[in-house]
């Protein structure tokens, strides 16, 4: 035991959770811009699945995290906890709202979500996939960039997102009714150019849609400062830069500078990287490879930062 304590300093430190046991324990920073908190809470209470639309890096994922945290701390206790052996102890009054996030990709199949039989030394064994676990545990299931997933995943999404709230598990021949706290939430970036990847209307119409966009300059400055720890001046200059660069969205840039990138730039500045250089690596070069555009954005940077 003593040795273990000694080596603790150098050992890599990480925490391991079972997927459905991951709770957002400390309050994530989220700065609401509109009524999205109320909307999400209402939808959660009413079991209405939520679709988050918006450009990359504008805070969709952070929002879901924040909601998972917030919903775990209701003013009044909704229902007592199941007994058992929670790896993470809940404090008094807390509700277990785990967050299961799945980044979708083009090879993501239905069985990756639902689960499958595994071979092991004694034979075969059924393993629940993340979706099944989320359904059972009553988690917020967040499918990021859902259009990327294979088409067969819609077979799972549909019965889960209407009044039935069930998950058919074909291979085991079971149907799982979702826990009362379960909510499906997906995100979607409407600016995709591929004709083959679009959300079908039958899918879309099972969700309420909350639109996200980059926050207005003053709020964005607040966010950047809070998240990156740079100075107030730098933060508002970065927000200004973000606003200006986004003006180019329809003039050659595929996407504007995301809040996330602004925060990166802010963090670099906090570490002492000169502002122009920080913006160059965090924003200009990230956004585009086209020389003329790069130059233009750099000129904007050099106007805003000394």
């Amino acid at each position: 035991m003593v040795e273990a304590v000694e080596s603790e300093q150098n050992e890599p430190q990480y925490k391991e959770y079972a997927i459905e046991e991951f709770l957002v324990r400390s309050e994530p920073y989220y700065r609401p811009v509109g009524d999205e908190l109320e909307l999400f809470t209402a939808a959660y209470n009413q079991h209405i699945p939520v679709l988050l639309k918006g450009p990359t890096g504008c805070g969709k994922t952070r929002f879901v995290e924040y909601m998972a945290w917030k919903l775990g701390r209701p003013m009044t206790v909704v229902r007592p906890l199941d007994s058992g052996l929670p790896p993470q102890d809940l404090r008094e009054g807390e509700v277990r709202v785990p967050l299961v996030t799945i980044a979708c990709h083009e090879d993501l199949t239905a069985s990756d979500l639902v689960g499958r039989y595994l071979l092991d030394s004694e034979g075969t064994r059924w393993i629940d996939g993340p979706m099944t676990r989320a359904v059972k545990a009553g988690a917020i299931l967040y499918l990021d960039e859902v259009v990327e997933a294979r088409k067969d995943t819609t077979v799972l999404i549909h019965p889960l997102t209407d009044h039935r709230r069930i998950l058919p598990v074909e291979k085991t021949g079971q149907i799982i009714e979702a826990d009362d706290r379960f909510l499906l939430c997906i995100s979607y970036n409407p600016h995709y150019q591929s004709a083959l990847k679009d959300l079908k209307h039958s899918t879309r119409q099972r969700f309420i849609s909350v639109e996200f966009d980059y926050p207005p300059a003053d709020i964005e400055a607040e966010i950047v400062q809070k998240e990156s720890g740079c100075s107030e001046e730098q933060a508002s200059a970065l927000a200004k830069l973000g606003e200006k660069v986004r003006n180019l969205r329809d003039h050659g840039l595929a996407e504007g500078a995301s809040t996330r990138l602004l925060i990166y730039a802010g963090r670099l500045m906090r570490e002492g990287i000169p502002p122009r250089r920080a913006c160059q690596v965090a924003i200009v070069w990230t956004l585009t490879d086209e020389a003329e555009l790069q130059r233009s954005v750099e000129e904007v940077v050099s106007s805003i930062f000394e």
């Binding site: 003006n247 180019l248 233009s296 954005v297 904007v300 106007s303």
Partner: peptide, 15 residues
């Protein structure tokens, strides 16, 4: 011209 145009568009937010 190209650079200046984009620069102006970025600052003003209009085409």
């Amino acid at each position: 011209k190209g650079v200046v145009r984009l620069y102006c568009r970025a600052l003003s937010g209009s085409p």
